[in-house]
């Protein structure tokens, strides 16, 4: 009995240390395909229409990802908040695109882009590719939607 408890304690200790070690080795979960530069010219292309504008997005230590998608005139399409890899929601959605199926698809696609996607790997019907010029392409093969993110120089940093 005493030996069993010792073995269990040892196993638990190993698991805890392994978890700590893995966190230390990997660091915060930032993905290489999203640069620290938080501004992109974005095109969203689908069979039913498209959208173009700018995506301004930032990863914060405590609150995860926060960002805004606006069109060229500065009219906001939506804000995006994703505190962790399991949670992603849209806020202040432009009325014309505030349909449940559109929100659901965009939310899922952005969650994949921000947390799950690895370059060149297709998973869950989605794939992320990064071009030599820094452009990021997220393709939702099931819904036939393409998100193209072109990095922008950021002259407005505070």
């Amino acid at each position: 009995m005493k030996r069993s408890i010792q073995v269990c304690s040892l196993l638990i200790s190993i698991l805890i240390l392994a978890g700590c070690g893995s966190h230390t080795m990997m660091g915060p979960r930032t993905y290489p395909h999203l640069d620290r530069t938080p501004r992109y010219r974005i095109e969203i292309n689908s069979e039913k229409g498209g959208f173009s504008g700018a995506l301004i997005i930032r990863k914060e230590a405590r609150s995860g990802w926060r960002g805004s998608l606006v069109n060229e005139f500065g009219v906001k399409a939506f804000d995006i908040i994703s505190p962790d890899r399991y949670t992603c929601k849209l806020q202040n959605v432009m009325p014309f695109i505030s349909k449940w199926y559109i929100r659901s698809t965009i939310t899922d696609d952005f969650r994949y882009l921000l947390w799950d996607g690895n370059e060149g790997v297709r998973r869950s019907g989605k794939q992320i590719d990064k071009l030599p010029n820094g452009t990021i392409v997220l393709t939702n093969t099931r819904r036939h939607i393409e998100y193209i993110l072109h990095p922008l120089p950021n002259h407005d940093r505070r």
Partner: peptide, 15 residues
């Protein structure tokens, strides 16, 4: 010159 103030990020974007 167009300046967009993004309240969620407390940032500005100029065009």
């Amino acid at each position: 010159e167009q300046t967009k103030e993004l309240s969620i990020l407390n940032e500005k974007m100029s065009s």
